[in-house]
């Protein structure tokens, strides 16, 4: 068998789960500089599903695709350390300000350029934008069917894919045809850790814009070992319509952003005594809150 061609969509995100006091600027915008940039958690679950298919079906190739600033190449390296075969960083000012629709447009144009793909695996949701929209929107733009909320890709053979989905109120086993877009839940198995062998192999892997900013000179190393070149594509490497890109291509606009502030209301302070509890109950009964 000739193996599957799999692309994992992965996003580098600020770690919004452990937000400290300095995470918000005075004007209510997010201070990305102080938040660690991480591999979006559910995209790691997605990567694991891809690597399991690679373990199972010889000849399978797993490619990571991420759209973001030059720094986002970090997550491609992270993916290589865990067993992915290669990665592409899609990076261009033209994509700045994209909403989910413009993001999925740029990603789908890139995917079209990547040749025949059997399975595209995304995380269900990114922890910064929190929309869970990019996976299905990419599927629609490519004309692929989709299976969302996947917990386990059971098999992908003879043009068929079987998937266990985890929904709010239960599970479903569904069968579809390839090619397919799959989005993976956090309930799926965790991603395997880094493999020391791959860390050695890929620790000098860099994308072009990373090398520009770096003090070391990677030219010689990369010429000798082409696999250390993380592919970096700009808008000129894919076919796009300018009006569908970035801010212009985004139907949704952010009108206002508010930092979630705690506004202390005037609270009535009570002692944990029978007398105070008695007063409280009387009040709640009198204003029909209870009873």
């Amino acid at each position: 068998m000739k193996g599957l061609k799999i692309v994992v969509l992965a996003k580098q995100v600020p770690d919004t789960r452990n937000v400290g006091k300095d995470a918000m600027k005075a004007d209510g915008t997010v201070n990305r500089a102080v938040l660690p940039a991480i591999f979006n958690p559910e995209d790691l679950n997605a990567l694991e599903q891809a690597l399991r298919l690679k373990d199972k079906y010889a000849g399978t190739e797993v490619t990571l695709l991420t759209m973001g600033p030059g720094r986002a190449a970090e997550i491609i390296r992270e993916g290589l350390y865990r067993g992915a075969d290669n990665g592409i960083l899609l990076s261009d000012r033209a994509f700045a300000g994209s909403d989910t629709l413009a993001t999925s447009y740029a990603l789908s144009c890139t995917l079209k350029k990547m040749g025949k793909i059997d399975i595209i695996i995304a995380g269900r949701q990114a922890i910064d934008g929190d929309t869970a929209q990019v996976g299905p929107q990419v599927a629609e733009k490519l004309g692929f069917p989709q299976i969302t909320y996947a917990e386990d890709i059971v098999s992908a053979e003879k043009g068929k894919i079987v998937i266990k989905r985890r929904l709010e109120r239960g599970i479903e086993i569904v069968e579809g045809t390839l090619p397919m877009v799959v989005t993976v839940n956090a309930s799926a198995p965790e991603c395997r850790p880094r493999n020391a062998k791959y860390v050695m192999k890929y620790k000098h892997a860099r994308a072009v814009s990373e090398m520009q900013d770096a003090s070391e000179d990677y030219t010689l190393l990369h010429n000798n070992r082409p696999y250390l070149n993380i592919g970096e594509w700009s808008v000129n490497d894919i076919e796009t319509k300018a009006e569908e890109l970035g801010l212009t291509g985004s139907p949704t606009k952010v009108k206002a952003i508010e930092n979630v502030v705690f506004q202390a209301k005037e609270a009535k302070v009570l002692e944990p005594t029978d007398a105070d509890m008695g007063e409280l109950m009387k009040e709640l009964i009198a204003n029909h809150t209870i009873g």
Partner: peptide, 27 residues
């Protein structure tokens, strides 16, 4: 407490039984 209309500073194990008792007495 910043969200509260009533703040009771005390131990659950102590406050809850008192609330039950006082509710019963007042109804």
């Amino acid at each position: 407490n910043n969200f509260a209309d009533y703040v009771i500073t005390g131990d659950i194990a102590d406050v809850i039984p008192k609330m039950i008792k006082q509710y019963k007495e007042n109804t």
